[in-house]
């Protein structure tokens, strides 16, 4: 089974993508499923609207689109309510974007949300690479405080924190490395350091072309060696059938 760990669905003009178009892209790429999160606007604000949109779109293709959710921790108690609601209604992964949402993942502000994710046993995808709020080591610090939560290091620190990943990645076994934006030639080196069993494929579509990213990563990373990166590792985190 091949699963794309990170795509966004939204109604934005330039970076919008709807469920039907996503499934078409998945078909072209030979990918079985994708985890979908809200787009940037609804990542920053209007979280509830974005989460509901994702749940709605995923219901159109329940076998292909896996709903994720997001919430901005600056909303405080309201954020916690939104997160409970999303998990109870089917969201399987929390996505946090410290750069867009304007917080540090290793700051106490994030603790209530991570506690909720831990309670529901949901993995947490954290965007990295942003220069103030996207250091891989910030995520490692957070992950060491929550050893029972599975974290996904979105974009593997790309672009400028690529050199931190091989070192930081070894510190917290509960952190998985997701390769969108890292480009295949760099992502492979990360996996050599932290282990293939902690690598996860994502396309970051529609900012990237889903079809092109999958074609390129599979070309660089032969399936007989890296097959778990293309699906099984993420399936294990999400608790879905790996076949």
């Amino acid at each position: 089974m091949k699963i794309d760990c990170y795509v966004t669905l939204s109604r934005e003009k330039d970076t919008g993508l709807r469920a039907g178009d996503l499934v078409h892209e998945l078909d072209l790429a030979g990918v079985d499923k994708a985890v979908a999160a809200p787009g940037e606007r609804e990542m920053a604000v209007y979280n509830q609207t974005g989460n509901n949109f994702i749940l709605s779109e995923s219901r159109k293709y329940p076998d292909r689109i896996i709903p994720a959710c997001t919430v901005n921790p600056w909303y405080g108690g309201k954020a916690e309510e939104i997160l409970h609601y999303a998990f109870k209604h089917g969201a399987v992964m929390l996505v946090l974007h410290p750069t867009i949402q304007g917080f540090l993942i290793n700051d106490d502000l994030a603790i209530p949300l991570l506690t909720i994710a831990q309670h529901y046993k949901r993995p947490v995808y954290v965007h990295t690479g942003g220069h103030l709020y996207g250091s891989p080591w910030q995520l490692i610090d957070c992950a060491m405080r929550f050893p029972d939560v599975k974290f996904i290091m979105g974009h593997a620190g790309a672009t400028d924190f690529w050199n931190d990943v091989p070192y930081a990645g070894k510190f917290a076994p509960n952190v998985y490395i997701e390769g969108s934006y890292a480009r295949p030639f760099t992502f492979m080196a990360h996996l050599d350091a932290v282990g293939i069993d902690r690598g996860i494929m994502g396309s970051a579509a529609p900012k990237n072309s889903l079809v092109y990213e999958w074609e390129q990563y599979q070309r660089y990373m032969p399936d007989d060696t890296y097959s778990s990166v293309f699906g099984a590792n993420l399936a294990g985190l999400l608790g879905i059938n790996k076949e």
Binding site: R183, P184, F185, A189, Q216
Partner: peptide, 14 residues
């Protein structure tokens, strides 16, 4: 040593 040309050539091509 990595070949970054293939990916980036392919990207501009699409």
């Amino acid at each position: 040593w990595s070949d970054s040309i293939e990916y980036r050539k392919g990207l501009i091509d699409i």
